[in-house]
Design a protein around this nucleic acid. Structure first.
Lengths: 245, 245
DNA sequence: CGTTTACTTGAATGCTCTCAACCAGCGTGG
DNA sequence: CCACGCTGGTTGAGAGCATTCAAGTAAACG
């Protein structure tokens, strides 16, 4: 297979792809695999390939070692939507300190690291764009830290929704204020650092304020401005301006 | 000036520098500047150069826009110790969504982006190492997210101390379980997401448990194992293994 | 001295957690 | 067909952690 068009759009939203860049991207041979909800897309540890999400939702999961042989509590540090190069950072690191797990059915695509090494040798501009992808990832991490430190439950959840809708609509994976989020409340809790019960109340709060309609995995944003204002959402950190790198 | 030896050590701790890499790094012309506590080392916005910390402590500060023309609360998403390339990610991003501020007196060194562009053109291996620097940065962000979601005040503060001592001792900026941290309790609060008063209690808690001695800016870790166990500190995420990239 | 800044402590309020129970949907097996 | 268990969502009550307001200490500086 060839690299997902979602990813091409992700890049083109931020910079102009030179013909050589585009040709090389499309020439990379990849392997596509399907995953059921809960399956591990990428295990913890050293990797020889990196993975791109083509369809569905995936998350980075950090397993917490309990103090006294305890349960396997887990934290979630990132969510990945179609077009995301979920573990591109694994290319330059010794190994991942987390796994990537499918939320809902996922179609993923694997790229061998030898092709990335070749790109760093031949195509400096495309190399900088791939580097940028991991830098945007880090900017999202920072925004999560800011949100965790400054927002309370309802606003915090609202911020996540604003971010996800923005990221999904940019690549064409969401439209008209609707998106499909196969997320359990327990997983939202692992993501935002609350108990599942508290997440439940935050969801109800958003419903009561008529900001969103949320039924199962279908989420519709009823009042974007209200949601953005409540969560102080400012998409600058997603680097949506086109700019030569 | 030539690039700080702290940074060379930072890289050599993780990979072998080829002679060409080392020569090029040492040949980069840089400008050194000094900053007083509270001064802005790097302002918010687009940048044409990136900055490395030679001496002192610096932080990335995100200013929060208050809801109703409110105060300028702020969040801190990263701390930088000597040898850190504080805004290397600014090279591949359109601009920084935060500023970098000196905590205590800081000596910093600036590298024009044109030299980095040249490296991506000529030296693939060194390019991957610089990319790695930003990836380690992101891994630290992730660990902060995990800590915020899973640790309570005292353990959370303990985790920060473990991380900082590890990072500083690796490059030779701290020894014998002692380090100099010119941090106000208010700034710790902005970092960990608590109120300054609560930080005060967490510091006292660590003192009462005889885990650290903390007088002014001088911190001594009295019981490393106790501190690491309390905060579940595991340095894997700092990528301390040497490995060819 | 008086002011400022940072740190410290106490008390009351409020946000979030835990424990507990209950409901709905779904697949299974009798 | 229906009882059953399982999973995930919902709601209530009490306890615990963190916040705010308030006051007081100590050191640095003019």
């Amino acid at each position: 297979m060839a690299i997902s068009e979602f990813f091409i759009r992700y890049l083109q939203r931020r910079d102009e792809l030179e013909p050589a860049d585009l040709a090389r991207l499309r020439a990379i041979p990849t392997t596509v695999q399907h995953f059921a909800p809960g399956e591990e897309v990428i295990p913890w540890g050293p990797r020889r390939q990196s993975c791109m999400i083509r369809r569905g939702l995936a998350a980075r999961i950090h397993v917490l070692k309990g103090q006294n042989g305890q349960n396997g509590a887990q934290a979630i540090t990132a969510l990945h939507v179609p077009g995301d190069f979920a573990d591109l950072h694994g290319f330059v690191l010794t190994g991942l300190e987390h796994s990537v797990v499918a939320f809902g059915p996922v179609e993923a695509e694997f790229v061998g690291h030898e092709h990335l090494t070749a790109i760093t040798r031949d195509l400096p501009h495309l190399t900088r764009l791939l580097w940028m992808v991991t830098a945007i990832d880090a900017a999202i991490h920072r925004q999560w830290i800011v949100a965790a430190a400054s927002l309370r439950s309802t606003a915090h959840l609202a911020h996540l929704l604003c971010e996800l809708y923005t990221r999904m609509s940019i690549v064409g994976a969401a439209h008209e204020m609707r998106m499909n989020l196969p997320l359990l409340q327990r997983q939202l809790a692992d993501m935002l650092g609350y108990s599942p019960i508290h997440i439940n109340r935050a969801v109800r709060d958003l419903r009561d304020r008529r900001l969103v309609s949320w039924q199962g995995t279908e989420v519709e944003i009823l009042d974007w401005d209200g949601l953005a204002q409540l969560s102080r959402f400012d998409p600058t950190y997603l680097q949506l301006e086109r700019h030569h790198r």
